[in-house]
Computed example of a mutant assay.
Amino acid sequence: MESEAADTAHLHRPLSPARDHGKARPERSSIVPPYWKRNSSSVNGGGSGAANPSVESLVRPPPIQLEDHTDAGSEQCKALWAKRVTVDDYVIVGGTGPGLGSYVVWNCTVETLDGGPMKIMKRYSEFDELRRQLVKTFPHAQGAIPPLPPKSVISKFRPRFLEKRHAGLSYFLNCILLNPEFAGSPVLKDFLFS
């Protein structure tokens, strides 16, 4: 037992030159990944750096290009028909017993560019189905489709949980309806008018 403890004791103590027969700790700079190091041309005070390009310049993504699609003749502008979307409130619809068969209906308002507001009432499962259909229809645009707020069996009728879900559904609807790629899709129209 004592020999086992003596054998493993050296694994837990730090290296020091005095105790480990002249073995010194490795220099900190030797364990820093190469992409954290500064460019050698700036450290050495010159040099072209052409022979040693920095890793940062090799992995830097191209800048984001912004396009203005607010011009009335733009194809993307024609696809947009909603100005703003809000999830106004919710109603808990009771089932046969306390908590049995109960569900939440979300009251939403879609303000259109040319007409008056549209009122829609949807359950969370309908938002979930909309998201699944959008991912299926637009697989290349999954990054533009935000996730829905999480489900909860225990907290699904608690006010704090419903407020978080309210904010998440509002964000989701705005991202979908105000995106010209999704705004004119039959999937979204089915969601709104069914």
Rank of each mutant, 00 (worst) to 15 (best):
R13L: 13
R13F: 12
R13H: 11
P14Y: 00
P14A: 06
L15K: 13
L15Y: 13
S16Y: 06
S16W: 04
P17Y: 03
P17Q: 04
A18R: 14
A18I: 05
R19G: 02
R19K: 08
D20R: 14
D20M: 12
H21C: 05
H21G: 06
H21D: 09
H21S: 07
H21T: 00
G22C: 03
G22W: 00
G22R: 01
K23C: 05
A24R: 15
A24D: 14
A24T: 14
P26R: 07
P26A: 00
E27L: 10
E27C: 11
R28C: 06
R28L: 13
R28G: 08
S29M: 10
S29Q: 12
S30L: 03
S30I: 02
I31Y: 13
I31K: 15
I31M: 10
V32N: 07
V32P: 01
V32R: 14
V32T: 12
P33I: 05
P33G: 09
P33M: 06
P33E: 13
P33W: 04
P33Y: 07
P33C: 05
P34A: 15
P34S: 15
P34V: 12
Y35R: 14
Y35V: 01
W36N: 14
W36C: 09
W36P: 00
W36E: 15
W36D: 12
W36R: 15
K37C: 12
K37T: 13
K37E: 15
K37F: 06
R38P: 02
N39C: 07
N39H: 11
N39E: 14
N39D: 15
N39T: 08
N39P: 05
N39M: 00
S40R: 14
S40D: 12
S40N: 11
S42D: 15
V43L: 06
V43W: 00
V43S: 05
V43A: 09
N44C: 03
G45T: 14
G45N: 14
G45V: 12
G46A: 08
G47E: 07
S48A: 09
S48V: 04
S48N: 11
S48W: 08
G49V: 05
A50P: 00
A50E: 12
A50H: 11
A51H: 01
N52T: 13
N52W: 10
N52I: 08
N52H: 10
N52L: 06
P53H: 12
S54V: 04
V55R: 09
E56K: 08
E56I: 02
E56G: 02
E56Q: 11
S57F: 06
S57W: 01
S57D: 11
V59F: 10
V59D: 01
R60F: 03
R60D: 13
R60A: 13
R60M: 12
P61H: 03
P61F: 06
P61E: 09
P61C: 04
P62K: 08
P62E: 14
P62M: 04
P62T: 03
P63R: 04
P63D: 07
P63C: 05
P63Q: 03
I64D: 01
I64L: 01
I64V: 02
Q65V: 03
Q65T: 02
Q65S: 01
Q65A: 02
Q65I: 04
L66H: 01
L66W: 01
L66F: 00
E67D: 04
E67A: 02
E67S: 05
E67I: 07
D68T: 09
D68Y: 05
D68V: 09
H69S: 11
T70H: 10
T70M: 08
T70N: 11
